[in-house]
Design a protein around this nucleic acid. Sequence first.
DNA 1: GTGTTTGTTATCAA
DNA 2: CTTGATAACAAACA
Length: 271
Amino acid sequence: MPELPEVETLKRELARVLVGKKIKKVEGNFKLDLIGKKIVAIERRAKILIFTLHPPHSYLLAHLKMTGQLVYRGLSSVKVIGGHPEDPHKYTRAIIYFTDSSKLLFNDLRKFGWLKLVKEKDLPKYIGHLGPEPLSKDFTLENFKKILARYPKRKIKQLLLDQSLIAGLGNIYVDESCFSAKILPTRIIKSLTPDNIQNLHQSIIAVLKLSIKKKGTSSRNYVRSNGQPGGMVPHLNVYGRGKEKCKKCGEKISKIKLNGRGTHFCSHCQK
DNA sequence: GTGTTTGTTATCAA
DNA sequence: CTTGATAACAAACA
């Protein structure tokens, strides 16, 4: 599940290799009129990648949803037995070729992800409703408190998943942030103490930063731009660890459904 | 055949 | 306006 750290990893890796490249050809079903356009910058907003193009005033947006991958295949002439992991396959939905013969593959097993060519004036439709970036200076403790105060009756997990309030968290990092803050994801917001809120604010930032450092969580489909997995899985405390032992106290990790989402926590460490 | 996996949006209900 | 629930999208996996 590509969430903020995974998309940020892709942004950084792809920016290094794609900025300055000109598009030669596009294959796939997304009807992208990109031929002759040049990538001049790559940004991220929430879980959306934004490729700034030249000529100006148009952008290529990418959302990987649950199983999308963006894999870059450079100029390596190395032959790999059985084929490169980055080569096109059954789930390759689009390929963008560059004039230097390198290419970018968009793979997506479940077809929820998308690529879109968007004019500048239409950008707000895709990113205008999003809340603050948790790793930006907009995400202050005061700001976070104000957001929470608006929805006193929600469960904290539900609020953290709402992209219009805080941008970029998904199921993995919400569960991990709650563990790190020692609060249950089921807690009603108005029951949270100032200490709880401060811990949660710091935990969100710390968990996201650690995952970016480890290049993201590859528990399912996510891979880095080179096709390799990220290194965050060994650092997860609760997500995907139902029935395993808590690393801190040894208690069995609980797994429940909360608002239709698999939700993981330690009932001893989190209150 | 059944349930589970999850990002996002739409829709309906209270 | 808030909130909660459900469906829709799709395909693999146990």
